[in-house]
Design a protein around this nucleic acid. Structure first.
Lengths: 236, 236
DNA sequence: CGTACCATTGAGTTGCCTCAAACCTAGTGG
DNA sequence: CCACTAGGTTTGAGGCAACTCAATGGTACG
């Protein structure tokens, strides 16, 4: 039994003011509303496939998404996450290259709007603020990617896992019980850190033994963030 | 004894037509020429430091440059390279963040122009072609970074070294004797691959034993590119 | 022609991976 | 309502890729 799902309107989208679209005028917003599409995804559904072309960008209205590549041995590597207000697919659209990553929803009722290329390109041309927001977003992402590269190349798995937990906290926040607000399998955690599932499990249970985290199924509670930060070997 | 070094003019810069500046008008070119600065670097000199702010972008007129971060244990990680016609520092300028990497010249007589922020921002606003070139460049870089992340996370050192040699070939080309046109120390190679210097040395001499490469000091000759490609485990 | 830096080789150690088996949980259907 | 199954999690054992440390060899440059 499927509940009724209504296409969300940009005009009333709560995420808009936090996003790259925050500088759009009323007219521009309604222009998008008249041209966009919208889709609903259940947990695990693929939104787009690495290697395909995209003729627009995806804007997440509700839910959480992982972006990942499949490595040469068929193993998934999670590149980044996206949540309500974030856009995905813009990299491939702007570079006119195939999508460099696949995207899959992490939750049921994930709602994602599709804004056609023409709309986006016209906004870039007509709205300098939007253009600079885009440039800034891309530049920021590129800086983050460089950090990840250095970490992967130099840090041991233990440090990378600790850092990953902190990044998940910053991305998805924690609730009043300090539980990270995203549910990932052990395998998915391994596919962020770049290690084997078993290594993640062993290290998590070490952190647990030291009372740095608590674990209830896929919920991870961060008990001692300073200790995690120390293990992660980050200063900033 | 220093030879006379003259500030190069964008108007006559041979690299311009290959670069992000290829779509500029005569007026815009001379506008830049009137406002840019220029510096000369000997091998190993630092052009800018990670963590500093930049108020413009650097355009390489002559020479080769490495961009690198220093990891938490003080180890260098080379993020990417730049050569004549490439620009560096644009990421930090556009995101209004500190520089995420340092840059150092790899050759004597490296010549680099500095174009102030105002000039660049005005070009972005006034010249849509330039703007789209920038967006495209950033997007492309971001896609490349994602590939590097997956490789570092999943491929063994042997594969990564083979792939690095191929990337160096694509970036700097080979001469008529199949020698890669960039001279790097074993340590620098290790700092691209993300491994120890000794591992690079051992693997290079394995490749040499199998007649896949030849080595004369820091010159690396690619004798069997299909074999290297097979080792690198790349398909594209 | 020394000296300082880089490259090479060897030996020993270990972090992390793989393989395999057992366990747990949630969903399914009898 | 409970047995059954499938998928995910956990634990253990064993092996190897790659690291560190240390010593030697090469070479470029003042």
């Amino acid at each position: 039994m499927k509940k009724h799902q209504e296409t969300p309107q940009c005009a009333t989208c709560g995420s808009r003011h936090l996003s790259v679209f925050c500088s759009l005028s009323q007219d521009e917003i309604s222009e998008i509303d008249n041209n966009k599409g919208c889709n609903f995804y259940s947990k695990g559904q693929v939104i787009f496939h690495e290697g395909n072309r995209t003729k627009g960008i995806y804007c997440i209205n509700k839910g959480k998404v992982k972006l990942y590549q499949i490595g040469s041995e068929g193993k998934e590597q999670i590149i980044r996450f996206a949540k309500a207000g974030d856009v995905i697919g813009y990299r491939a659209m702007l570079s006119e290259e195939p999508l460099s990553a696949s995207a899959a929803s992490l939750e049921d009722d994930t709602t994602i709007c599709f804004i056609p290329q023409d709309q986006v390109l016209s906004m870039i041309t007509k709205n300098p603020n939007f253009n600079f927001k885009l440039l800034k977003m891309l530049s920021h992402e590129l800086g983050e990617a460089a950090k990840v590269i250095t970490d992967l190349a130099q840090k041991p798995v233990r440090e990378r896992l600790a850092e990953t937990l902190l990044i998940l906290k910053n991305t998805f926040d924690v609730d009043e019980h300090k539980v990270i607000q995203v549910k990932l399998s052990r395998e998915e955690l391994a596919n962020i850190v770049g290690t084997a599932t078993e290594s993640v499990i062993r290290l998590l249970s070490e952190f647990k033994k030291d009372n740095i985290i608590a674990i209830e199924g896929r919920n991870i509670k961060l008990l001692n963030i300073p200790a995690l930060t120390r293990i992660a070997n980050v200063f900033e």
